[in-house]
């Protein structure tokens, strides 16, 4: 990912990807399919992980901030801002890089090694555009929903702790998650989600598209896709935070 040569090939592939589709009708047909495959099918795992992480994060903050000087509702506030600022965008994107990224890389990679991509090129189809654009656009469109959903599930997990344990009264928790809400944090989270969605889909597609060899190489491509899109997300996270919050 970080070699200049690799970066150059990535940029070139993106230029081909973001050109005008040979046939818009085919693009509009692919887009919803990709949104289901990449977005809708990820809802389950996001649901489970966000609920449990929301629950455990609330428990940890309560356990570690027990002090007469800190009001109890502040635990709800901390959970809300952690979910909003980092978990729902960054951590969830790392998770998606593993699930969606490997899926994209192995799908495109196996099309490459079985010459399906060559077959498209021979027909005069811009294969990068046909295969990659709907994935990138589809995932980007899904991200705001997924991020919002993740925040919601995290708070739900916290509410579960409030309801089912005596660690924090529900009223305090509910008060806390509404206290001193900064709307820009939501915008910040959305913007990060959009960037990360782009990174996951495009970097993974890149590794799949340039796979060469056999089935083993497709596996390698998909590992590379996950590792490198995760690194790119972590770097981009620092850059975006520096730009938007400091």
């Amino acid at each position: 990912m970080f070699g200049l040569d690799t970066l150059g090939r990535y940029v070139k592939l993106m230029q081909r990807t973001f050109s005008k589709p040979d046939n818009w009708r085919m693009f509009w047909r692919q887009l919803p399919k990709e949104m289901v495959k990449l977005g809708v099918d990820s809802i389950g795992i996001i649901l489970i992980i966000s609920i449990f992480m929301g629950a455990i994060m609330l428990m940890q903050t309560i356990l570690n901030t027990e002090s007469p000087f800190i009001p109890r509702y502040s635990n709800g506030l901390i959970l809300r801002d952690t979910m909003l600022l980092e978990f729902a965008s960054s951590i969830m994107s790392l998770l998606l890089a593993g699930k969606v990224g490997s899926n994209i890389a192995s799908e495109i990679g196996s099309m490459r090694i079985t010459e399906q991509i060559d077959a498209m090129e021979i027909m005069g189809v811009n294969s990068a555009n046909y295969l990659i654009l709907p994935k990138v656009v589809g995932l980007i469109l899904c991200m705001p929903v997924l991020v919002t959903f993740s925040v919601f599930c995290g708070l739900l997990g916290g509410a579960g702790i409030a309801v089912f344990t005596d660690m924090i009264p529900l009223a305090d928790f509910v008060y806390g998650i509404q206290y001193a809400f900064i709307p820009f944090y939501y915008t910040y989270s959305m913007i990060k989600g959009l960037f990360f969605g782009f990174i996951i889909a495009s970097v993974s597609a890149f590794y799949g598209y340039y796979a060469y060899g056999g089935a083993l190489d497709v596996g390698r491509a998909s590992t590379n896709a996950v590792v490198n899109s995760s690194i790119a997300i972590l770097l981009m996270n620092i850059i975006l935070t520096r730009l938007m919050l400091t």
């Binding site: 040979d22 046939n23 009708r25 085919m26 099309m111 079985t114 010459e115 399906q116 060559d118 077959a119 021979i122 027909m123 005069g124 189809v125």
Partner: peptide, 28 residues
């Protein structure tokens, strides 16, 4: 104007037989 038959057939495995044959037509 070119058709090609690949060594391993290279059919699109996410599409049915009819969709495969129709693919170039749908495109162009």
């Amino acid at each position: 104007e070119v058709g090609m038959l690949f060594q391993g057939a290279a059919l699109f495995d996410s599409m049915t037989v009819l969709e495969n044959v129709m693919f170039p037509l749908e495109m162009f």
